[in-house]
């Protein structure tokens, strides 16, 4: 299966890049935009048939490496 991990700064932690993108969108006259967040996506194949084990493994990867939980939140999705 394929794992898709999204990492974003936590709500409450100022996202300067999101703010800059928001300003740029406004300068293009998109005045209906709010709450822009810039994050990163990490995609990889996971050779694992046990779904529970896959969730446990990827959660551990996020906690230990893929996200810095002092400032970032993450979401995990699986695509078959």
């Amino acid at each position: 299966m394929k794992a898709v991990v999204n990492v974003f700064l936590k709500a409450g932690v100022l996202d300067s890049q999101g703010k800059a993108v928001h300003h740029a969108l406004e300068s293009l006259h998109f005045n209906n935009v709010s709450n822009v967040r810039v994050g990163k996506q990490i995609i990889f194949n996971l050779d694992e048939s046990d779904e529970q084990k896959a969730v446990t493994d990827v959660t551990k990867m996020c906690e230990e490496l893929l996200a810095n939980t002092v400032i970032e939140d993450y979401t995990i999705e699986f695509v078959k």
Partner: peptide, 17 residues
């Protein structure tokens, strides 16, 4: 050292980018 947990907090991108 912050990433390794030896010091508290974290370093983000400069506010001005």
């Amino acid at each position: 050292l912050t990433e390794a947990g030896l010091l508290p907090g974290a370093l983000k991108r400069n506010e001005s980018l």
